[in-house]
C-alpha cells in the first residue's frame, strides 16, 4: 500500500493529477479535488506521474 497526501492549502483544484491516476484522484461535482488516502502499490507509478504534473506541487507519497 502507498499513502497519498495532498496539501489542500496548496491545491488549486486544477485536476491535472486526474489524467495520470484516475483511480486515485477525481474532481467532484463542485470541481474540487477528491482523492483516496491510500492506494495499491500498483498505483505508485501513476501517482508519481501525478506528482510530476501537479502545478502546485501539492501531492506527496508518504511511506
Amino acid at each position: 500500500m502507498i499513502k497519498i497526501d495532498v496539501d489542500m492549502a496548496k491545491c488549486q483544484h486544477y485536476g491535472q493529477c486526474v489524467f495520470e491516476a484516475p483511480s486515485v484522484f477525481e474532481l467532484n461535482n463542485d470541481d474540487k479535488l477528491e482523492y483516496t488516502a491510500t492506494a495499491d502499490d500498483s498505483e505508485r507509478a501513476n501517482v508519481e506521474a501525478a506528482i510530476d504534473v501537479c502545478p502546485m506541487q501539492a501531492i506527496r507519497i508518504v511511506e
Partner: peptide, 11 residues
C-alpha cells in the same frame, strides 16, 4: 477561468 470539468472535457 474556473469551470475545470468543462475545460477538461475538451482536453
Amino acid at each position: 477561468i474556473g469551470m475545470r470539468s468543462v475545460v477538461q472535457s475538451y482536453r
